[in-house]
Design a protein around this nucleic acid. Sequence first.
RNA 1: GGGCCCAUAGCUCAGCUGGAUAGAGCAACGGAUUUCUAAUCCGUCGGUCGCAGGUUCAAAUCCUGCUGGGCUCGCCA
Length: 551
Amino acid sequence: MLNLRNTVDGEVTRALKDFLAADEAALAASTLSKPGFLDCNLALPMKLARIRHKAPMVLANELASALAGLPSVARVEAASPGYVNLQLSDEFIARALTDVLAGEPERLLFKNGNGERVQVEFVSANPTGPLHVGNGRGAALGSVLANLLETQGYSVGREYYVNDYGSKMRLFAESIAHYLYPLLGFEYAMPDEGYRGAYIPDLARAIFDACGEELSVMAERERLEAVELKGKSLVLASIEVALGDIGVTFDTWFSERYLVENGWNDRVLEQFRARGVVYELDGAVWLRSTDFGDDKDRVLLRRDGEPTYTLTDAAYHFNKFQRGYRKSIDILGADHIGHIVPMQALMKSLGLPEGFLEVVIYQIVHFLRGGTRIMLSKQSGDIIELAELVREVGKDQARVFFLLSSADSELEFDLDVAKENSLSNPAYYLKYTHARLCSVERQAVGVGMQIPGSASAGDVALLSSADDRELIKCILRAQDEIDDAASARQPHRVLYLAGELAKATNVVYQKEKVISDDAALAGARLCLVRSARLLLGAYAALLGVSLPESM
RNA sequence: GGGCCCAUAGCUCAGCUGGAUAGAGCAACGGAUUUCUAAUCCGUCGGUCGCAGGUUCAAAUCCUGCUGGGCUCGCCA
C-alpha cells in the first residue's frame, strides 16, 4: 500500500523546488499529526527560521501559500509557533483505502525491493537439550523480523546454526553414556560438568531402544561418537517440533560440524594468514583482532590444534557470504552481549563488507505466575521448556507475549494473563476484534450490502467524525510504520501497530453503526471497517498469529 | 574495573529522522447494555520522563557526568 510520508514529502518537495535550497530540502519531512490538528504537519518553518533569519510564522505563511493546490492535500494552514498543517484530500484517502480493499491481503504491507539476500539467524541453541522458555523470545523476534524484512523486498533466509562440534557435544555424549552404558552392561562416570537434566536419562533410554544392540558391539571410541550423533538428532527433532509449535520454521539448519569437516576453517585460516593478521604464541595460533577494534587478540587454533569457536564462527560467517548473503542479522540473547565486539572484529579481519553482520540482542525474560516472578530451575518444578510454555498458553499468546516489549528491554511474561480472555491479553483482543468485524461483514452481506472493493472520495467525505479520522490515520500510516520497524529491526512495533488499529476500530464500532438505513453512509462505514480488518489481518500475518472469523 | 542494555503513571510497557496538550493496558473509582459479538466502549484519578549539567527556537528523545538495576568479560560454545 502507499507510503504516506513518501507521497506527501514528494509533493511538498516538488512544490517547494524553487523555494528551498538543496540542503534545505531535507528539512521538509512531514509527520502525521496528533488529534486536534490537521492530518499532517511540517516543522519546516521553524527549521528554516534560523538559516533564513526570518520569523517562523512569516515563513509558515509563505510556505502555506506555496503549498496550496498539492494533489493529495485539501487544505493548508500556517499555525503558531511555526507549523504548516496539511489536511489530506478525500481523493487521496480514498486511494489509500482502495489499496487495502483491492489488494492481496497477505501482501498488503509488502513493497518491491531489489531482492537482496539477507539472512536472519536465530534461536541456534546448542543441540544438547530441549529449548528453554527463554529461547522463545529469540524465536518470536527472529521470525517476525524475517517477515518484516520480506515486506521490504529482501530475499530472506531463516537459519538455525547447529553448534554440533566441540567439547560441549562431547560432554553431552558422555552425560548420556552415563545412563546408557549400564543398560549395555558397562559403566561410564558422569563428567564433572555434565548435563544433568531429566531429558538425559530419557535420551539414554531412547537410544538404547533404537540401537542398543549395535552400540554394545562397537569399539568405545566409535560408540561414544554414535551416541553423540544419535543424541543430537533426537534433540534436534524435538527442537524442530517445539519451534513448529510456536509457529517458527527455518529454511536451513546449518551444521558447525559441516564447516569443520569440509575445510572451511582451513580456508579462513589461510585467508587470515594471507592477510597477515595471525601469529603464534605459546603453541597456539592467534588472530590480531585488536587491529580491528577488539579489546584483546583471540586464539584461533588451540595448543592442541583444535579450532576455537572463534575460528569456526569466522568460517561460518565467511560461508554465509559465500552463499550469497549480503547481510547476516544474528539474533542473540543478552548472555552473548560480549560477543558483538569480537564478532565485528572478525568480520573486519576477514575483509567482509562493512555492515555485513548485524547483531540484535534481546534482554532476559522473567516469567510471572500468581503475580510473582517464578524461578526457572530444575528444583522449582515449574515449566522450563519452551514446548511446555506453548502447550500451556497457546502459540499465538506465546508469540504475542514475547513481543510485548522492545528487544532492548527486559520482558515480563505473565502466564496468567496470557491465558486470560480479556482486554488485558493483547492476543485475545486482536482475535476478538477481528471476529467481531467479520461478523459485521457477514451481517452486512445478509442484509444485501455489497462487500466494497474500492472506496470513493464520496465515501471518505461521509467518514467525518473524529473517531473515523483517527482510524483512517491508523490505516494511512501503516506502511510507513512497517518500513520503519523493518529498518530499525524492531519487530515488537508490529504488535503495537496492530493493537492501536484494533483499539481505533473498536472505538468506531462502538460509537457508530455500520449497518443502517442510510445506504451511502453504511457503504462508507463498511469500506472503513473492512479496510481495518484486512490491515489487521496483514499485521497478524507478519506476527505469525491467526485471527478467527468468529469466536 | 571495562563493554553493552535498561530507568517514563501504583504495576507492566510504548513513545525511532528532536516538534504543538507525554500515551496504552492493568489496578482504583464512576458510567454506557431494546448490542451490527459489552470478550466492548466512555469518563475520572494518577507523571520533577532516575539525578545534574550541556546543545537547540524546541529535549522523554541528542551529548557529557553521576546514581541504581541487568547481562557480560575462557586456548567454553
